[in-house]
Design a protein around this nucleic acid. Structure first.
Length: 598
DNA sequence: GACTGGCGGGG
DNA sequence: GTGTACGCCAGTC
């Protein structure tokens, strides 16, 4: 048996025969450092939990289905130990096929953990983390024996036993940014008519290139015969550069679909993936995403919307915000004129095109570390994390933690529960409208992590919420009166507690660190934890969340209002006068008593 | 106010 | 794919 150590980049599953096979895409460490690896695991089965009404009947009913196996397990479900039937199925797609039938059985009360995608289930159950190092035992297999095509220098490895997470530092990854220009004389580009005239590439290892059908004396321009050749050459470069991360700007919605459409029209095979596959498009509600197997396609536009607070999110605007430098711009509707005119204008267009790709590389260098760290903490693929709202990350973090301590994961709300929840809204933080005028002698006060602190100190959690209890045994929220047991420590409070403790540890380490690179890494890590801790309050108030509980949301904000008001009163007793307050802090002027009495 | 429809980015 | 999910603002009544 051999072993391999690799950075886990991405994960999915394929079907061989009637069996699901997990594929982990990675970058090898050690002897064959830098080589791509695909690790196969053929021994992971999907499962769901069934909460029975009539245990014996339920067991009998379940055995009527074509399932792998079924057995009893005792699991903590929102503060109560309950007996569940763990139903193991043959294939992930049996889950959606069978779950409604099972749920509707008369002997069944509810089904749980039936909507966790197979690859996510794998990461959680095996306790491994994308962007971290994983150690596997097993053997290399011949590329002839696998059901997908693959470049010859990719190591295919069949795993035996369990993958193991290895403590590791920040991985050094290869990124490749790309951008396309289109000749669209009227309106927005239409893939049916308007050809791609340039494709730009920029890597974090120095590659700078513009592919085009026109030539130039600019050294970064490579001229090709036709548009089809440009696209083909683009795919070729991606494969030979073999980046871990592919970067674009609004590429989920523009560049990738456009490349797909033009490639299809011109009969060019889009074999961008590590496994030789093309670009896969997925509808995620309102948004689309473009996926390239084994490389992580990241659309920076989505990330920038999340991380920066701006009026607009054009590439120029974001670049200016981060680097305080203007970027040369060619207006979109004039690109075809620059192209047609040639000469200096064309040269400018080449420069602009490359500049866009280079800007994306620069932005990524600054902004990706935070997402990478969130990936390592939340433990879901980078591709998903780059498209997830923080609230969703919190949820997946909690799902992992629930599994870790053996708690059942609550279901997502049904559509009727969702619409019922949407009608309710917890009152927000206390706001005192600002006193108009120009104030002097201003002091400011704010609570550090107000809501996370309340959740911890008042043990606010769905599993500690009770209707009745002795005052000595519980905390009672002001105004709303919700009660929370003092013991045991609730699920969410214990997790926020761990996050905050870990953050304190990192901040201490950061202060002690002498190496600036190390300091920077620790700083990103503590920022990621801060984001998670601060978003955790949201799980109680957002209608779509599994741990939603309006009473918890109401209690947290009620205590918040209580604290800020009491603090303001105390400050006023000392001669301060509050002039503005919002949620977790206030501004006050100091009124000098002696001056005033004169 | 309560509700609906459109839009963001990209060329 | 153990799919189908935003959040804001302008315009209308």
């Amino acid at each position: 048996m051999e072993s391999r150590k690799f950075v886990l980049l991405d994960i999915d599953y394929i079907t061989e025969g009637d069996k699901a096979v997990i594929r982990m895409f990675g970058r090898l460490e050690g002897d064959e450092e830098g080589q791509s690896i695909i690790v196969l695991d053929k021994n992971f089965k999907p499962y769901i939990y069934v909460l029975p009404l009539d245990p014996e009947q339920c067991m009998a009913d379940l055995n009527e289905f074509d399932i792998e196996m079924v057995g009893w397990v005792r699991i903590n479900y929102l503060g109560e130990m309950k007996d569940f039937l763990k139903v193991t199925l043959h294939h992930p797609q049996d889950v959606p096929k069978l779950r409604d039938k099972i749920r509707n059985l008369g002997s069944v009360k509810d089904i749980l953990e039936h909507d966790i995608p197979f690859y996510r289930r794998y990461l959680i159950d095996k306790n491994i983390f994308p962007m971290g190092q994983v150690l596997v035992n097993g053997k290399c297999v011949d590329s002839a024996s696998i059901s997908f095509s693959c470049d010859t220098d990719v190591c295919i490895f069949e795993l035996e036993g369990k993958p193991k997470q290895v403590e590791s530092g920040f991985p050094d990854l290869k990124t490749l940014s790309f951008d396309i220009e289109v000749r669209n004389p009227k309106g927005m580009p239409q893939a049916e008519e308007d050809p791609i005239i340039m494709m730009s590439l920029s890597s974090n290892q120095g590659l700078k290139k513009v592919l085009s059908t026109k030539s130039s004396d600019l050294e970064f321009v490579e001229t090709l015969k036709t548009e089809a050749h440009i696209i083909q050459r683009f795919f070729e470069i991606v494969r030979s550069e073999n980046p871990d991360i592919l970067l674009g700007y609004n590429s989920d919605n523009f560049d990738m679909p456009y490349i797909r459409d033009r490639a299809a029209k011109l009969n060019v095979k889009p074999n961008l993936g590590v496994d030789g596959s093309g670009i896969k498009f997925m509808r995620r509600g309102y948004a689309n995403s473009a996926l390239v197997k084994g490389r992580i396609h990241v659309d920076l536009y989505l990330l920038m919307r999340r991380y920066l607070q701006l009026d607009r999110y054009t590439l120029e605007r974001v670049y200016k915000e981060l680097f305080d430098e203007a970027k040369e711009d060619v207006p979109g509707d004039e690109i075809y004129q620059y192209w047609d005119e040639g000469g200096e204008k064309l040269k400018k267009l080449f420069e602009y095109s490359l500049d866009d790709a280079v800007a994306v590389t620069k932005i990524a260098e600054k902004m990706l570390p935070l997402s990478m760290e969130l990936t390592r903490i939340v433990g879901q693929p980078f591709f998903d994390i780059a498209r997830m709202a923080t609230g969703q990350m919190v949820e997946w973090y909690l799902i992992r933690k629930a599994h870790e301590i053996g708690d059942m994961v609550p279901n997502k709300p049904s559509s009727s529960q969702y619409s019922e929840r949407r009608g309710k809204k917890a009152a927000g933080g206390y706001v005192k409208d600002p006193v108009k005028g120009l104030h002097e002698n201003i002091v400011s006060f704010d609570f550090r992590s107000l809501y996370p602190s309340i959740i911890i100190s008042k043990n606010v959690s769905p599993d500690t919420l009770v209707l009745e209890c002795d005052d000595d045994d519980c905390y009672t929220a002001p105004e709303v009166g919700h009660k929370f047991l003092k013991k045991p420590i609730g699920f969410v409070p214990s997790i926020i507690g761990n996050i905050l403790e870990e953050r304190v540890r990192l901040k201490t380490a950061m202060k002690m660190a002498e190496n600036p690179r190390e300091k920077q890494v620790l700083d990103v890590q503590q920022q990621a934890l801060k984001r998670l801790a601060n978003s955790m309050y949201g799980v109680y108030g957002y209608s779509r969340f599994r741990w939603y509980r309006i009473e918890c949301a109401e209690a947290v904000t009620a205590w918040g209002r209580d604290f800020i008001k009491k603090t303001m009163e105390k400050a006023e007793n000392f001669g301060f006068k509050a002039i503005y307050a919002d949620t977790d802090g206030f501004y006050a002027t100091f009124v000098d008593q002696e001056t005033e009495s004169e």
